[in-house]
């Protein structure tokens, strides 16, 4: 038992993904993700957030984990096995146990098929049921988890449902396969605010009642703050800060994360942004492409000459597992 505990469910080990180059040698390369590591234990289930703005590499990470992309270097291990080197049987298990929910609940449906088709395909591909009645019971159970009933939706076409309903059906489809991990790439960014809570609540219940972990990929720190356990914040492919979600957001350390959190509009008219500060930032300089040094250097308030020489490693901060990649937190060697 103790040994089982040590093999994480999913482990991302120093993964780097570079786009470009290759055949067209002269084309500039973009490092979408650099030396990123993360591990998720099977128990207890956790909601792990990966946050960052557009171009930070968070969707690249999701695509790597789901096997849509292959890492340029580094490994992704599922229950200790590299997903690039899995046997057919192992891959089938992996595909069943790691499910995905995507951002756009409009684009993932084939408009010609009824909703029931989504579930039928999953049941057929993985041979989950021996007969129709069994299949129907499974689907009904999955729909109940997300607060829906089969007779309400299975015979409908996607355009007859709202975005929130479609997204819940996607979660139900994922749940149907009894996954251990759901990779949710911006699952609520296209859903209305009043229905967002419902999807977040479903994620919490799946975690607590069904022991399903989530890799929650988002640009929205407020929802991560409400439901997330651990958070990793990326900036241009680099991990800049990681730790317990509440700890990181209440007490951000990296200058980028500080700026990010300061910039979230507070829903209280009495707490306005302190101005001036941000207008001076030339956001055009933030374009990716720099290969060396700290990616945040052009915009940083505390930049030093050495930040250009090499990217800072992750430094441990005072509280247990809170880390930031910034020379400001280097422990002086005496």
């Amino acid at each position: 038992m103790a040994e089982l505990q040590e093999i994480p469910l999913l482990e991302v080990r120093k993964v780097t993904k570079v786009f470009g180059g290759g055949f067209l040698r002269f084309a500039p390369t973009t490092v979408a993700l650099r030396d990123f590591s993360l591990s998720i234990q099977e128990r207890p289930a956790r909601i792990i957030t990966v946050a960052g703005e557009s171009g930070s590499g968070k969707t690249t990470l999701a695509n790597l984990i789901l096997g849509f992309l292959t890492p340029t270097s580094g490994q992704i291990l599922y229950r200790g096995v590299d997903i690039q080197k899995m046997s057919h049987q192992q891959r089938l298990t992996y595909r069943r146990e790691v499910q995905a929910v995507f951002q756009d609940p409009y684009a993932v449906y084939n408009p010609f098929y009824r909703i029931g088709h989504v579930f039928d395909m999953a049941i057929k591909n993985f041979g989950l049921a021996r007969n129709r009645a069994e299949a129907r019971a499974l689907v009904e159970d999955a729909l109940n988890v997300v607060g829906m009933r089969g007779e309400e939706v299975l015979e409908k076409y996607p355009h007859q449902l709202s975005g929130g309903q479609r997204q819940r059906i996607m979660v139900a489809r994922a749940y149907l396969l009894k996954p251990r991990l759901i990779v949710a790439d911006e699952p609520v960014s296209m859903v209305d605010a009043s229905l967002r809570a419902m999807i977040l609540d479903i994620m919490l219940r799946l975690r607590d009642e069904h022991n399903i972990s989530f890799l929650y990929i988002t640009h929205d720190l407020s929802t991560a703050y409400q439901i997330g356990d651990r958070i990793y914040i990326l900036y241009q492919g680099q991990l800049v800060e990681g730790g317990q979600t509440t700890e990181v957001i209440d007490n951000p350390k990296h200058p980028y994360v500080q700026l990010l959190i300061e910039s979230i509009p507070v829903p209280d008219p009495r707490e306005t942004w302190g101005r001036e500060l941000v207008l001076t930032i030339d956001d055009e300089q933030a374009a990716p492409g720099r290969q060396e040094g700290c990616p945040f250097y052009p915009r940083c308030r505390f930049r030093m000459a050495r930040c250009l020489e090499a990217a800072p490693p992750l430094y441990n901060l005072d509280s247990a597992d809170h880390q930031a990649a910034c020379y400001l937190y280097e422990v002086p060697t005496a």
Partner: peptide, 8 residues
């Protein structure tokens, strides 16, 4: 329904 970073 507004999510905030002020309190959980």
């Amino acid at each position: 329904a507004i999510p905030t970073i002020k309190q959980r």
